[in-house]
Design a protein around this nucleic acid. Structure first.
Lengths: 168, 168
DNA sequence: ATAAAGTTTCAATAATTTTTGAAAGTTTAA
DNA sequence: TTAAACTTTCAAAAATTATTGAAACTTTAT
């Protein structure tokens, strides 16, 4: 396969993966484009390469900055803003994990904790089942939370070394 | 908080979490409802409790069966079909991990492997950057895949015991 | 101060995803 | 075989989400 075709295929695949995981397709595609680009790119270049509007490009770039996945760069003597992506895949994974933990896991944990204080008739099967489900989910969510916490702090080699060693 | 209110809140929270992770809201809500229900429920009961149409309920129930999260039950002497959810949260997590691995991770791994055979000029920065990104993503995806594979086979206590022990 | 270069905003529009509901299909019992 | 009970399908409608593009805004250089 040629480079040009491979790039397109990668951008498409990354976009699809993103959309299956609740990240909007364009955002994932812009990220893909910057990830495989050795140089920082301008809004114009991104608009052109992905055939998207200025407004869309601008909002998407701001979102990506908000996720900590790309940064602005200013070139000496130029007005234009350039954008580039962190190329370290482990950093990317951590950044995504961090944001989703904050935005999605934590609010749910909060609600689960509230729900575990529910009170009712200890003889009622409805009540018993409810309490048990909440308790079990809480426990699992707590484990996931702890593991993510560790992952956020870890060096890649240490993290996978430790995790995979256990599994051999 | 009272049981009735807590149930509603749980169904809502589970639905929201689902939709943030690419699982349709109704599907997550039906799952939530069955998860906290001590008895198997009929399509009618589900329709009524969640205020959804028959068509929606039917499709959603079939999807949930396809995901291995709920099962049909037939009560002796009755025509109606009843549905109940596996209450074991670890089984649920594994089931979801298994399906998403199959539906989403595996197709991406396949494409990444194709892309890693790209050929071009070893002096071209575009080519160098592309190859390195693909290689790094491939490595990470491989680690994720291995970990999921282990999780799918593992007992809950063994899995978290091993993972969390490493992190203390 | 002003105009060129560049960036941001957001209401309108388009695209996608989900839901409905009625018709078609199936199963069971008499 | 018939009809009641129940399930499935799917085209149309509704709801949600993403995108456009033009106007407003900001910054810089002269």
């Amino acid at each position: 396969m040629e480079l040009a075709a491979a790039k397109l295929k990668f951008i498409e695949a990354w976009g699809k993966l993103g959309s299956e995981w609740g990240i909007n397709r364009t955002m994932a595609q812009v990220h893909a484009l910057l990830l495989i680009s050795p140089e920082a790119l301008t809004t114009e270049e991104i608009m052109e390469q992905l055939s998207i509007s200025r407004g869309n490009a601008n909002m998407t770039l701001r979102d990506l900055i908000g996720w900590g996945l790309i940064e602005k760069q200013h070139k000496a003597g130029e007005r234009k803003e350039y954008f580039f992506a962190d190329k370290d895949v482990w950093n990317i994974a951590r950044q995504v994990a961090k944001e989703r933990k904050k935005r999605e896991l934590e609010p749910v944990l909060k609600i689960l904790n509230e729900l575990s204080t529910v009170n009712g008739d200890e003889k009622d099967p409805e009540f018993i089942t409810f309490k048990k489900s909440i308790k079990d989910i809480n426990k699992l969510a707590g484990n996931v939370d702890k593991t993510l916490e560790t992952m956020l702090k870890a060096e890649e080699s240490w993290f996978w070394g430790s995790v995979l060693k256990v599994f051999k």
